[in-house]
Amino acid sequence: MSAFDSNPFANPVDVNPFQDASVAQATSRANENLGDYNPFSGNISGKTIPASTASSQPAVLQTSVEQTPRATAAAAQANLIKQQEELERKAAELERRERELENRSTGRPNNWPPLPNFFPMKPCFYQDFEEEIPEDYRRICRRMYYLWMFHSATLFLNVLACLAYFTVDSNYGVDFGLSILWFVLFTPVAFVCWYRPVYKAFRSDSSFSFFFFFFVFFFQVAVYIIQTVGIPHWGNSGWITSITMINKNLAVAVVMMVVAGFFTVNAILAVILLKMVHSKYRNTGASFSKAQQEFSQGVLTNRTVQSAAASAASSAAQGAFGRSQGN
């Protein structure tokens, strides 16, 4: 009954486990050892642990899972910084090259036509196949230039043939006069209207220049065919006029036939080169939409067109204002 008489709510007897004799003896020994321990010395209790007794296994640094995303992000950031620096370097290089080209284009003098220094007129164009024309288009561009030179020589020979024609028969003075006109007119017009556009097209890969060249050069081929035929009183020493001259003067007829052969060669070469330029044009990626875009940008950025449009708009506004006041 004594167990039932004890008070369950009374404080239990505090039992100190360290009061046991064995526990007290163990703790006193541990305190003595700790008193002699120096963590900065290489021994415990004054005794050095030999290296052979140490563990032979290498220490392995256990990386935590939290550091892996940080390292990946740091590596990715470093890669992005490196790519950005590379892009900035390339952009600076391109800008430097563009600046050099602009300085070269503005500072270089025109070299065509090659005129002597004492001549009152100066060259009007700059032309350099090696510098301005890419290697893939250089040969066809040179051939177009040679065609223009052959075209000019043919027109000059046509003047001589028509002069001989006129000396035999004075009724053909019109042909001689027109031959001079064709030589003076078509030589520079051909250079400006179809040779320079194809030169610019190959130089800058301009779709508008390509389309302009095709439009003009198609009519040039038609003119070559007409000159080859040689319609009388048109100022051309073609096959018809040269054949009709055989019965009158054989020597003049031979000269005119030579010129007619030159016109024929012009027509054949023009057709061949037109096909070659068209094949090159298809490989450049030019299109009619690009030509329209280049034309619109060229018109909008042209200062002459802008000034003309501004003057026209101002004059129209003044006229409308004057009419409104008059009413």
Rank of each mutant, 00 (worst) to 15 (best):
F40S: 13
S41F: 05
N43F: 04
S45T: 06
G46N: 04
G46D: 04
T48H: 02
T48G: 04
T48S: 12
I49M: 05
P50Y: 01
P50W: 05
P50K: 08
S52D: 13
T53H: 12
A54K: 14
S55Q: 09
S55Y: 04
S56K: 09
Q57R: 14
P58R: 13
P58L: 12
A59H: 14
V60S: 08
V60D: 09
Q62V: 14
Q62S: 15
Q62F: 12
T63F: 07
S64C: 01
S64H: 03
V65W: 01
V65S: 12
V65G: 05
E66N: 08
E66T: 11
T68A: 10
P69A: 13
A71K: 08
A71C: 07
A71L: 11
A73W: 02
A74K: 14
A74T: 15
A75Y: 02
A78H: 05
A78I: 05
N79L: 08
N79S: 09
N79K: 11
N79A: 10
L80E: 10
L80W: 04
I81Y: 09
I81R: 10
Q84G: 13
E88H: 10
R89T: 15
R89G: 14
A91L: 15
A92D: 11
L94C: 03
R96V: 04
R96G: 06
R96E: 09
R97W: 04
R97C: 02
R97Q: 13
E98W: 05
E98K: 13
R99C: 06
E100Q: 14
E100T: 06
L101Y: 12
L101V: 14
E102Y: 07
E102G: 05
N103R: 12
S105L: 15
S105V: 15
T106V: 12
G107H: 03
G107T: 03
R108L: 14
P109T: 07
N110H: 14
N111D: 05
N111C: 03
W112G: 00
W112Y: 13
P114G: 02
L115S: 00
N117C: 02
N117E: 07
F118V: 09
P120D: 07
K122A: 03
P123N: 03
C124E: 08
C124T: 13
C124S: 12
F125T: 14
Y126R: 15
Q127M: 15
Q127R: 08
D128V: 07
D128F: 08
D128T: 10
E130L: 11
E131P: 03
E132L: 12
E132Y: 06
I133F: 03
E135L: 15
E135A: 15
Y137A: 01
R138W: 00
R138E: 05
R138S: 00
I140C: 03
C141I: 06
R142N: 07
R142K: 13
R143T: 07
M144E: 05
L147G: 00
W148F: 09
M149F: 05
M149K: 06
F150W: 07
H151R: 08
S152G: 11
A153R: 12
A153C: 15
N158D: 09
V159F: 00
V159H: 00
V159Q: 00
A161M: 02
A161L: 05
A161Q: 01
C162S: 06
Y165E: 06
Y165T: 00
F166K: 04
T167V: 13
T167S: 13
T167W: 10
V168Q: 05
D169V: 09
D169M: 08
N171A: 10
N171P: 02
Y172K: 00
